[in-house]
């Protein structure tokens, strides 16, 4: 394209003007909390590689009120991400059963079932290994 292009001015607070826009922005920002948790996991792996004693000290830090508060914030963001993500999936991907399109509700339901099952399996394995 040549010549001048008209770019409609956008105010940076557009997302505060409508509830649905604000929720969209909240959803986008949950990814920052989740990426932050990835960085926390990297730090955790680093301390695990330093031997038992440093790792135990790191884990003792997990018991501090600040750590628990941050974890609860991340958990809230992560849950919001999970719910919005599972509800969005049918809009991103279409699944076909023969000639018929699988309904949005069925895909969303399958996602939530997968989520609960995976969470139960992870918790089950962790506690089984911990006890064994």
């Amino acid at each position: 394209m040549t010549g001048k292009q008209y770019v409609r001015p956008v105010q940076s607070n557009w997302w505060l003007q409508k509830r649905s826009y604000t929720l969209f922005m909240v959803r986008e920002l949950t990814s920052a909390f989740i990426a932050g948790y990835s960085i926390f996991l990297i730090v955790m792996v680093y301390w695990a590689s330093q031997g038992n004693e440093p790792f135990t000290r790191f884990c003792d830090g997990l018991k501090s009120p600040l750590s628990i508060l941050l974890h609860l914030l991340v958990l809230a963001a992560a849950l919001y991400h999970s719910i919005t993500w599972f509800n969005l999936t049918p809009k991103i991907m279409a699944f076909w059963r023969g000639e018929e399109k699988v309904s949005d509700g069925a895909i969303q339901g399958a996602n939530f079932v997968l989520w609960l099952l995976a969470s139960a399996v992870v918790a089950g394995i962790v506690f089984a290994v911990a006890r064994g």
Partner: peptide, 18 residues
């Protein structure tokens, strides 16, 4: 991956250990 696995992992490091 984060939708399926992050919540349970956060519960493990943020609640189960403390």
């Amino acid at each position: 991956i984060s939708a399926v696995l992050t919540p349970i992992t956060v519960i493990l490091t943020g609640i189960a250990i403390p």
